[in-house]
Nucleic acid binder design. Structure first.
Lengths: 368, 368
DNA sequence: TTGTACGCGTTATCAG
DNA sequence: CTGATAACGCGTACAA
């Protein structure tokens, strides 16, 4: 029976509360509260005394208690399909940076591309009493039912990147249409006329819009759409390889360019072309979408469309702050922020005049 | 004076509380509380009635209130230098997945490699009353002072990847030493004898250990260390290029291999070698560290050491849960989890016998 | 098995 | 300018 030391060394000192400060100074808690929250009706002398003691005793405000009382926390909930991967990681970076600048903390949730999980995430965030929710939809989300409660509670809700266009929502999106248009125009200007397209799942706004941009660019050159040249897939590396194989096997000589709605797939295409000794960009020009880091590493380097990931995160937070500002009366005020994509032209799409200085300038522009 | 509609349509219905349920059913709040928290002393009949109504009225528990009451929230705070970039993004993915499985939410903070910011992050998380803190130190953190409060409060604190070895802390780290040792041994087995090393900032445990593994592997082959062959830098792409230039310029014929403590730098080296028409791996073999996605894309593909990012996140959460379990009495119980790295051998380091099937098997192993 | 009453730490309302 | 008091929503000794 070794006598256990009474005054145990790891005494976990309980945190200091406003009541402690009040007792110590012989004033009321109200005074403490006012001093700390910089209220106007407070004597500068007492205020200093309070702040002094707070510093000395290492007072930590309890956000939970404040939130409970005010019915308003300083937490923002974020729901993304997954966090690893450059796009969402960078968006989240933008969100966290902007949010913390505005005094908010960020709770992160992953839906794993699963509606059921997304539903749970919403519940959890509501239970956590978040001040707002920013969400990029899972791949197979088809309706807004699970977001109705959020709206009912008057909690600001902002969608980004992946949204359902069917409904009126606050959203920050990239102008995917323009991205598809720009890149296709670029390929046309390089002299390409049989341009293939790797298209993603069409129920997602982003892939639908990129495809439409592609089609409209063709039309601006009086080129009729050719469904043979559009390959639909989930845009994985293997999908890209297989899609490229299909295009090469077309009866009338294949294509002289491909615009892929994703970089991963275009990488697969590039690998296939190299294995088949098809010269890129001389015989087939390539362009992708997302401006992934590896596009500046491949040989040749890949032309791609930058999605402004970080700006998207910042914009989402800004939009949330606006909505939070005008609580209630903006419930019907639908705000849309549309970011302009940026085309990064690299070797894989330069046919005739290399215009090398332009390339050099932009080649390393992995800004996002 | 347009008369404002009294029954405004966007009536943000206030959330249902336990009191509401109690009133509705004509029972006390205690009963409600017990029914919802699955307490033992509760009639199965009343329990069902409560749960029924809760579902019907869409009751959302208020975690804030519960946390305030219990002095224990269901939040885990995570501090990383930055979130974008594969390593931390994937670790955070692992953390969030494991945490949510255990019923915890994750608050994410970025220190931006800045101690001052890290200090602020700690304060914020304490104010948010998190149940624990997981942290990977900023590059220029040299002491633990700002973590003392965390310890004082008895809040579980777990470090991962970047730690200060000077102190006794709970930590999850990669066996960087072994990673450096393995990869250097591999280069030696390929016949290389003048192996250069790109070393990172030596005050960081990870870079110091990788370097030591390199040195010990050399010694196991009776090769004396040669400080000329070790280039110190911040391991950026440009650093890699410049470091490679320096090694090539050495008087006695340069090197026949390089082990870089980071993939980005080894990529710079590869680019430089290609521009100088030095054959990789025939004239100079290359190996990096981190198993970045691009290592499987370059030509030749780059040999690298995988850091088990996702496992690291999971392990950090597991460790936190253990500590949270045994509150208090484990304050001095120091736990260390050391993950074993995995070497991915690719083309850039294969000299003599290609043993191609081995390569093929591992080439795409971007598991992390 | 159920109900009563109090407290977690903070802020807002009302008197002085 | 300051203080007493009530509430926010929930959990839990204690009593019934």
């Amino acid at each position: 029976m070794a006598p256990r030391s009474k005054k145990t060394v790891d005494a976990t000192s309980s945190p200091i509360s406003m009541a402690d400060l009040a007792r110590e100074l012989g004033v009321s808690m109200t005074t403490i509260s006012r001093a700390l929250s910089d209220h106007h009706s407070i004597g500068p002398a007492t205020k200093q005394r309070v702040l002094k003691l707070a510093k000395k005793l290492n007072y930590q405000p309890n956000h939970l208690a404040a939130a409970l009382r005010k019915g308003q926390s300083k937490l923002i909930g974020v729901i993304v399909p997954y966090i690893e991967g450059r796009f969402f990681a960078t968006v989240v970076h933008g969100i966290e940076t902007a949010a913390s600048k505005a005094g908010f903390n960020v709770i992160i949730c992953q839906s794993s591309e699963d509606v059921a999980q997304e539903r749970k995430n919403v519940e959890t965030l509501l239970s956590a009493q978040v001040a707002g929710i920013l969400v990029s939809l899972s791949r197979d989300t088809n309706d807004f039912r699970h977001f109705e409660k959020v709206r009912k509670r008057g909690i600001p809700l902002v969608f980004f990147d992946r949204v359902l266009e069917s409904d009126t929502v606050n959203a920050v999106v990239l102008n995917d249409y323009d991205g598809g248009y720009q890149v296709t125009r670029h390929l046309l200007e390089q002299g390409c006329r049989r341009i293939g397209h790797f298209a993603g799942p069409q129920h997602l706004n982003i892939y639908r819009n990129r495809r439409q941009g592609y089609l409209d660019a063709l039309e601006s050159y009086q080129l009729p759409p050719d469904e043979q040249l559009i390959i639909y897939s989930d845009m994985t590396l293997e999908d890209g390889t297989e899609s490229m194989r299909q295009l090469l096997a077309l009866p009338d000589g294949g294509v002289d360019a491909v615009f892929s709605a994703g970089d991963t797939a275009v990488l697969g295409a590039l690998q296939h072309l190299k294995s088949k000794r098809v010269a890129v960009p001389q015989q087939v020009a390539l362009a992708g979408f997302s401006n992934e880091a590896f596009t500046a590493i491949t040989e040749p380097m890949l032309t791609s469309v930058d999605q402004r990931c970080e700006e998207m995160g910042q914009a989402a937070v800004r939009l949330f702050l606006e909505l939070a500002e005008s609580r209630g009366d903006s419930a019907f005020l639908q705000r849309q922020v549309i970011l302009q994509p940026r085309l990064f032209i690299r070797e894989s799409s330069l046919q005739g005049t290399p215009s090398l200085d332009t390339v050099a300038k932009q080649a390393n522009g992995i800004s996002c």
